[in-house]
Design a protein around this nucleic acid. Structure first.
Lengths: 145, 145
DNA sequence: TTGTAATCAGACAAATTTGTCTGATTTATG
DNA sequence: CATAAATCAGACAAATTTGTCTGATTACAA
C-alpha cells in the first residue's frame, strides 16, 4: 500500500496540498476535503486536528468554520508535515534495521543509503506547499481520485 | 520503527545475511539465528519458512536440520528478498499516495522521486548476499544487537 | 526402535494502525 | 433564542502486522 510514509501521513500531505491550493482567507471543511480526496471523513477530521495542534493548520468552529494554513504556503515544507505526523525515524534508522548501525558498527549499506536518504531529505525540505499547489494546478497534474 | 521495509522484511534480510556468512554446506537453525539476531523465535521460523517457499532458502528437518541458501550467495540480491517478503509496491506507487499519479496525472514529486526510487532499486539489485556477507565480516561491521 | 532435535502448520494473542460513531462545543444566522 | 453547520474529544471497532503457543512431522543417532 503505502511505501514510504504511513497512510495517515499520505492523507496529511494530500490534505495540506489541497488546502494550499485554495485562495488565502478561505476555510476548507472536512466535508469538502473528503469530497475531493479519497480519505475517510472522520479519519480526516482527526488528522487535521492533529495538524492544527502541531501548528501547521488553524481551525475555526461554527457555521462557516473549517481549516486553513497557519502560515503562508511557501513557508511550509513537506518535511514539516512528515515530521509532524510520522516523526523523524527515517533520519536516523538503519535501512536494514541493524540496531548498532550508526554507532561505529555500520551495516554494508550504511554509506550508500545515507546518500540517498539525504537526497530524499533535501527533496522534502526544499518543496513547499506553495510549490506543490502551483505545480498541481498545471494541466497533467491531478489531485482527484 | 522500521523506515523503508516492514519489520518482517528487515528480519528476513538480516537472517539471510547471517546465513550467507556461514560456510557453505552448514545448516543454520532458528535457535542459532535468534541467538544472534534480535528476532522472536517463532516469528523467525515463520519468516524462514516463507523464504524457503519462495525458493530463497532450503530447509531440512530433523536433528541436524536447519536452513541454508538455495543458491550461491553471490546470486541472491537484496531485491530478491524484499520482493519475496514485501512485494513490489515500491516500484510503482506514488510517494504521496495520489491514486492517479503515474497514469498521466503525475504529482509534483513524481519525476524527482522516480529518480531516487530508481537509485534505491539499483542499490538493492546490485548488492548480493555475497557482498553483504563479505563486507560485514570486516572490522567495524556488526550484525549483533 | 526409541529419543531427541529440528522444521512445519495452523490457530491464537497482542500491538499497532486505520477507520467509525456519538455527543459536546462553538459560531453564524434567521 | 433557536437552529444549523462546523470542529473537537474520546471511546470504540476493524484491519493489519507482529508475536506466541501447541502439536505434528521428519531425520538422525544411540
Amino acid at each position: 500500500m503505502s511505501i514510504f510514509f504511513s497512510r495517515q501521513c499520505e492523507y496529511a500531505l494530500q490534505s495540506a496540498i489541497y488546502i494550499a491550493k485554495k485562495p488565502v482567507g478561505e476555510w476548507t471543511t472536512v466535508k469538502e476535503l473528503t469530497g475531493h480526496l479519497n480519505v475517510p471523513y472522520h479519519f480526516s477530521g482527526k488528522i487535521l486536528q492533529n495538524l492544527s495542534r502541531k501548528g501547521i493548520l488553524v481551525s475555526m468552529k461554527g457555521t462557516h468554520g473549517g481549516f486553513a494554513l497557519a502560515k503562508p504556503a511557501k513557508e511550509v515544507t513537506l518535511l514539516d508535515i512528515v515530521d509532524a505526523v510520522d516523526g523523524s525515524a527515517f533520519h536516523k534508522n538503519c535501512i536494514l534495521g541493524f540496531p548498532r548501525c550508526g554507532d561505529g558498527h555500520e551495516c554494508s549499506l550504511h554509506d550508500q543509503w545515507g546518500i540517498l536518504r539525504e537526497k530524499i531529505y533535501q527533496m522534502l525540505i526544499k518543496k513547499t506547499l506553495g510549490d506543490l499547489a502551483r505545480d498541481m494546478n498545471k494541466p497533467g497534474y491531478s489531485i482527484l481520485p
